[in-house]
């Protein structure tokens, strides 16, 4: 069984992971991962499919109860997760989805929906919204809980390119306002450079590269610095151009 919050404690960091191993059968999907995320820091986790990035996120979210493994990890009590699918309950109206599990949170839910630009859609059914709008509701549902740590598993993977660009702007704005520590799993190199303070590359269960992103705002793919970071990251991913 996976161990949680072993001997580690969180003093100045939002996440501490040490020597994390997760195995499916004989295959180690995570093979000794060390990671620390500072409060308010935005970390993007890049990797090919099968590199173990989702497994790491699920370990941090506490969703890997049936997985073998060892190592230590410490996460704050207040963690929110955004999945690739919006995962809204289809039988609950938008506002009830946002306030799911919270007591007397209608007013906060409304404010949160207004923050993601969906004021006035409180009483809509999730099916009536577009894919991008559904994902914005999912963001509102996460942020209304004021998480110390926000875990996002390819949250924009199912969206079209234009919607994705708008969501990047929105996510940056929301993170600036709420200041959670963020771990964003993605396979989109440009997305990771646009959004993150630091990009980590995972390959075969190990961290193979780590790159702080220190670019002028707004970050543009036309920036030479952007191109340089991109080629470093692509290199770490084993993609040669």
């Amino acid at each position: 069984m996976a161990t949680h919050a072993g001997g580690l404690t969180l003093e100045k960091t939002a996440v501490e992971v040490r020597g994390l191993v997760r195995k499916y059968g004989e295959r180690a999907v995570l093979d000794g991962v060390d990671l620390a995320i500072q409060p308010g820091e935005f970390v993007a986790l890049l990797g090919k499919s099968g590199s173990g990035k989702s497994t790491l996120l699920r370990a941090l979210a506490g969703l890997d109860y049936d997985v073998d493994g060892s190592g230590e990890l410490a996460v704050p009590a207040n963690v929110s997760v955004v999945f690739q699918d919006s995962r809204l309950l289809p039988w609950a109206r938008v506002l009830d989805n946002v306030a799911l599990g919270l007591r007397a949170a209608d007013e906060r839910g409304r404010e949160s929906l207004a923050e993601v630009g969906l004021a006035g859609r409180e009483q809509a059914w999730p099916n009536e919204l577009s894919g991008g709008e559904q994902q914005r509701v999912a963001l509102a549902r996460s942020l209304v809980r004021e998480p110390v740590l926000l875990l996002a598993d390819e949250p924009f993977g199912a969206l079209d390119a234009l919607t994705r660009l708008k969501m990047h702007v929105l996510l940056r704005k929301l993170c600036a306002a709420h200041q959670p520590a963020v771990l964003l799993v993605t396979h989109d190199v440009d997305e990771s450079i646009v959004l993150a303070d630091r990009v980590i590359v995972l390959d075969e269960g190990r961290i193979v590269a780590e790159e702080p992103i220190d670019l002028a705002e707004p970050r543009s793919p036309a920036d030479p610095g952007f191109t340089a970071v991109r080629s470093i990251l692509l290199d770490a991913l084993g993609v040669s151009l």
Partner: peptide, 25 residues
């Protein structure tokens, strides 16, 4: 089962889980 996972991440109690997810589902 994705809704069960969601219920766990938002910290629903057993009774809330039954009322919000199981019965309407």
């Amino acid at each position: 089962s994705r809704y069960v996972e969601l219920a766990e991440t938002v910290g629903l109690s057993r009774w809330e889980f039954i009322r919000r997810v199981v019965l309407p589902g």
